[in-house]
Amino acid sequence: MRNTSVTRRGLFGGGAALGATLQSGSALAQSPPPGAGAPPVDVSLKVNGAQHELRLDPRTTLLDALREHLALTGTKKGCDHGQCGACTVLIDGIRKNSCLNLALSCDDLEITTIEGLGREEALHPVQTAFVEHDGFQCGFCTPGQICSAVGMLAELKRGLPSAVTPELAAAAMEVAETEVRERMSGNICRCAAYPNIVAAILDAAGKA
């Protein structure tokens, strides 16, 4: 079974033998509306406390709006499918994947990116802890890890349980290592700085 055309017989309705002409492209995708454009829309985004009026293609994700239209490139595109967490931002204080939000569905919401958490001269405690514990290597996933950690610590404070919480009904959540690991699992670090990231977060949580 190593012949492409043989196995694609079913697809193209009969008898495509070896060497047959195959087509691809939109053939296997749902057909888009012919020639349609996407009229731009006005979007008002509040990011790191500043209001921005943008005119965007409706398809623009919050991630691309931040990066390409607001020059806030700290938020990273690692996969564009919610599978890595590099694009994590805080929306109304809640951590979310900016790649899976349309920019135009985010109007009226308070968006905080890594640039809004702290500056080099005035780091957020979680940022400081990441530097001290070497909670990164290449640094690409780092803004997402940090935004996620900030959101995650707030969730702990609110008493939101996780998959590893021993007592679901408990009102208060412990800032334990296993809890942090489980809750940070939506942020992949290919350099695998995981032990240092967890140490940094535990340190910052203690100081916060």
Binding site: T4, G19, G25
Partner: peptide
């Protein structure tokens, strides 16, 4: 997604 490519496929070794 609108680029249409037609191929003469050959048996590959994979």
């Amino acid at each position: 997604r609108l680029v249409e490519v037609s191929y003469q496929a050959e048996a590959g070794l994979y």
